[in-house]
Design a binder for these strands. Structure first.
Lengths: 209, 209
DNA sequence: AGAATGACGATACAAGTGCAATGTGACAAG
DNA sequence: CTTGTCACATTGCACTTGTATCGTCATTCT
């Protein structure tokens, strides 16, 4: 038997290349050959690890959701109470730095892709479902009870997704988005249970970049 | 000189076909030939009215934004005060019926497209800018002043965009989205200045379809 | 040492893409 | 009735796409 390689590692390498292409040139430019070129390998190898293009797409989607979850678990502010946990999660989804901008572009691209690919849509739905359940639970535990946890969770999640779209489109600043999120968090949880905003108490009015 | 036709009418016809294709099969399947087939014309005619594919895309985007604005102006509840006006605008953006579902799919597809097409991104930005300005103005006039109008406008717009994405993805019901929007509107404007919710006072808990 | 097997690379192919060039026909002004 | 001009149709081209097929080479077990 020949050389033994870790297939998952290879696939992840290719998925990373795919994500880079998707983020910089859009999902329409994601092709076997482009991904291969971006990864610095031959198109044949891509085909060897993904029998079909859709298989590659779905795997790439898995990679990003796993990556987001990993970052969440590594975030220390997670353990500063329910409010901080929820904030940590939601900020992960906001394009606040370069890495997150790439992931954001990929995410929105996949949402569009999901409209015509049921398999992708299902996976997206599972992820959202999990996040909403955990947010609702946290609100139930510390929220000030004035509003329905399920509804508040839906609202926060949607707000963040919309903010992400607007930030990526250059409609608003990342700072503006974060402060908007914080304002809404303060409404869901009784107080501003947020540490780590050492800057101007008035939210930044940087306006459109 | 030969037969005189209204170019704008022709272009709109083609744009409609493009929107149908984009909504049902995704933006990746939008090609000159597919649009032509959907419109029931030859590919040559499409080329006659749009010198390039991008030109066709941008025009189609213009058509939808013009259509949304037209619907807004035709909405009678618009004149029931600032709160109702804002609600009317935002509900227009929610995929509450079949037509709006198609437009919603198109919108998210274009947001993804904008990531790699600056011209499209600019146009999208202009539309958003206008909406936010008008929402902020309305909040300034009747809002209860506890929060910054600009920020509240950004929040509402983002919320609606996120809700639209979630509804289209099947993550939440349209009813759930509307009631969530209403809850947030009640926060921006002092009271629930909304008529026309004859159903159960408790928001519908239809959950994920 | 030899063979088997997994990891690739190269190539082929049908289908589809955007775009350019050129044709064709009808209709209105002269 | 001619003629110029606009509205389309046809065809062609160079290219990219996803996928199938086959070749090759190294490595590891026997």
């Amino acid at each position: 038997m020949p050389k033994q390689v870790d297939p998952h590692e290879r696939r992840t390498l290719l998925a990373d290349a795919l994500l880079r292409v998707a983020a910089t040139r859009g999902l329409m430019d994601v092709s076997l050959r482009h991904v291969a070129a971006e990864a610095g390998v031959t198109a044949g190898m891509v085909q060897h690890y993904f029998r079909t293009k859709d298989e590659m797409m779905v795997f790439a989607l898995d990679v990003v959701s796993a990556r987001v979850q990993a970052r969440l678990e590594a975030d220390p502010t997670t353990h500063d109470g329910p409010g901080a946990l929820v904030r940590a999660l939601l900020v992960q989804l906001l394009p606040v730095d370069d890495d997150r901008v790439l992931e954001g572009r990929v995410a929105i691209a996949f949402h569009a892709y999901a409209a015509s690919r049921p398999a992708v849509a299902t996976r997206l739905r599972e992820d959202t479902r999990g996040m909403r359940a955990m947010i609702a639970e946290q609100i139930r535990s510390e929220g000030h009870g004035a509003l329905d946890p399920e509804q508040a969770a839906t609202g926060l999640l949607s707000l963040v997704e919309g903010l992400a779209v607007h930030v990526l489109g250059g409609h608003v600043t990342a700072d503006h988005a974060v402060s908007t999120l914080d304002a809404h968090l303060a409404m869901a949880f009784g107080h501003v249970s947020v540490l780590g905003r050492p800057d101007d108490p008035r939210h930044s009015r940087a306006e459109h970049r």
